[in-house]
Simulated assay, not measured.
Amino acid sequence: MNFGYSSNINGSNEFKENYRIYPISYLPNTVSDEKKQLLNNSGKIILPPSALTKLSFLEISYPMLFEIQSNISFNSTNVGVLEFISEEGRVYAPDWIIEQLKSPVTSTVSIKSISLPKANFVKLEPQSVDFLEIENPKVVLENCLRNYSCLKLDDIIQINYNNKFFKIKITDLKPDPKGSCIIETDLVTDFDPPKGYVEPDYKKEQEKIQKIEAIGEKDPTIESMTKRVYIPTLTNDNSLKPTATGVKLNGKKVSNNQILDDKPIVTHEQLKKLTSETEIKPLILEDGVLFFGFPYIAPKNGDSKDDDDSKDQNNSANFVGQGQKLKRNNKRKIGKVSPTGVKGGLSQEEEGRKSPKT
């Protein structure tokens, strides 16, 4: 088993090495968290600088594609390479690749260079119905697939959108399902329904709409949002009627017939007994009908005697007596005594002043 630079060339331009696999989160602190997150949602690995030296010696052409296989589970997938900055003997891979390989951390994996055809069609299956919440999934996937170099059938890749992770399964891939390159190619994408998605029954929805429309056609006087509901009388026991007489505000007495108007009155004890013996059922209305309370019925003219009493009260004189003004009249009148005790008219001095000289 080889680690690092040494490998078996076997007279061919094939790169093949064994490394210990580590997740992206194990990268040194010199790598930013933003870059780690970008790498973890991609299909590329980090190799040591010695791998770049050997790839240059073997004249491996761009794009550099590799097959990574676990030496424990023997599961494999196809990946690309982003940088050559890892420690010697180590390879850093995204979490979804480690899950796909079913390879424990620090276990050995075999990496060899491969050449793949250009992909022209891929079908994807989201692994969660939450994927339907994305407004334009096709554009989102096209942007996310730029972080991948190649795909393989039945692989479950991972994408990040709005800080939320989605897993996508490759259900169809052309021209080669075992692996196809998606770099610098025109790729047609298609979608399968998300895993766990249940197609709605459009026939039942249509029948429900027709039923609601039919309710409005039965009675044109009943609007679509209202319905008149009548509740039966609780009891008709005449022994519960009171014997006292009532008095109006104007002092007139009211007979029992006017008070009750043949309406039953139920006591608290009788109501408890009635509810305990009677099964209380919910108010079930038809589809599309809401209950906003009982309808208001305006009283007809002449039905109530209170109208006649109010007319009599309005006609009677409510106030009697003479009124006085707050402003006093200051005009002097002849023949009346002034407030000073002098009769009205001019005094002798005033007459002497105003009389003409003779």
Rank of each mutant, 00 (worst) to 15 (best):
Cys181Lys: 05
Asn136Ala: 07
Val337Lys: 15
Ile297Pro: 01
Pro339Trp: 12
Lys112Phe: 10
Phe131Tyr: 07
Ser304Ala: 09
Thr267Ile: 05
Val337Cys: 12
Ile284Trp: 07
Pro200Ala: 08
Ala51Ile: 02
Lys333Met: 14
Asp262Tyr: 11
Lys272Glu: 15
Pro220Gln: 09
Gly302Cys: 06
Lys218Asn: 10
Asn120Lys: 10
Val229His: 04
Glu125Met: 14
Ala93His: 02
Glu88Trp: 00
Ile21Phe: 06
Tyr22Glu: 09
Phe74Ile: 02
Val320Pro: 00
Phe319Glu: 12
Lys331Asp: 12
Ile45Gly: 02
Pro339Ser: 15
Glu213Val: 10
Glu99Leu: 10
Asp309Asn: 11
Tyr148Gln: 04
Tyr202Met: 13
Lys112Ala: 07
Val139Tyr: 08
Lys195Leu: 14
Phe292Trp: 12
Ile111Lys: 07
Tyr62Asn: 13
Met64Leu: 13
Asp306Thr: 10
Ala51Phe: 11
Ser25Ile: 09
Asn318Glu: 14
Tyr26His: 13
Gly11Cys: 03
Val337Arg: 15
Ile334Ala: 15
Ser42Ala: 06
Leu55Met: 15
Gly179Ile: 01
Leu283Thr: 00
Pro48Asp: 07
Asp154Lys: 11
Gly4Tyr: 01
Gly89Tyr: 01
Lys311Asn: 11
Asp186Ser: 08
Val266Arg: 01
Pro117Thr: 03
Arg328His: 10
Lys327Cys: 06
Gly341Pro: 03
Asn256Met: 04
Gly345Ala: 02
Ser56Asp: 13
Lys138Val: 11
Lys253Glu: 13
Ser50Met: 05
Gly341Ser: 06
Phe292Arg: 11
Asp186Gly: 03
Asp219Glu: 09
Asp172Leu: 11
Asn71Lys: 15
Asn257Pro: 00
Val289Gly: 00
Ile284His: 06
Ile265Leu: 14
Asn147Ser: 15
Glu286Gln: 12
Val105Lys: 08
Lys195Ser: 12
Lys36Ala: 00
Pro23Tyr: 03
